[in-house]
Amino acid sequence: MNPLLQNTLILALIAGFACMEYVSRRYRDTVQATANDTRLEVLMFLSLIAISQPLALFGSNALCAWLMPAQRNVFADLPWWAMVAAFLVADDMTQYWWHRLSHTPLLWPLHRAHHSANYMSIRITYRNNFFYYLMMPGLWLGGVLLYLGMGQVYVTYLVVKIAVILGAHSAWRWDEPLYRVKALAPVMWVVERTISTPATHWAHHALTNRDGIGHYKGNFGNLLFFWDVLFGSAHITRQYPPAVGLQDDRLFGAEHWAHQMFYPLARSKREHSALRPGGRPYEDGQQEVQVEAHDLGGRMQSGAQ
Results as ranks from 00 to 15, higher is better:
A12V: 08
I14F: 10
A15Y: 06
A15V: 14
G16W: 05
G16M: 04
A18G: 11
A18Q: 02
C19Y: 15
C19K: 02
C19G: 08
C19T: 11
M20K: 13
M20V: 08
E21A: 10
E21W: 05
Y22T: 15
Y22H: 15
V23M: 06
V23F: 14
R25H: 13
R25I: 07
R26Q: 15
Y27M: 07
Y27Q: 14
R28F: 10
D29L: 15
T30G: 05
V31I: 09
V31A: 04
Q32D: 14
Q32T: 09
A33W: 09
T34M: 13
A35W: 15
A35C: 11
A35L: 13
A35G: 12
N36T: 06
D37R: 01
R39K: 15
R39I: 04
E41G: 05
L43A: 11
M44S: 02
F45E: 02
L46V: 11
L46W: 06
L46C: 14
L46A: 12
S47W: 13
L48W: 11
A50D: 02
A50S: 15
S52C: 15
S52P: 01
Q53H: 08
Q53V: 09
P54W: 05
P54T: 00
P54Q: 02
L55K: 00
L55I: 07
A56Y: 00
F58D: 07
G59M: 00
G59F: 00
S60T: 11
S60D: 10
N61F: 03
N61Y: 10
A62N: 04
C64M: 14
C64H: 06
C64D: 02
A65W: 05
W66E: 00
W66C: 01
W66I: 07
M68A: 15
P69M: 04
A70N: 06
R72K: 15
A76T: 14
A76S: 13
A76I: 12
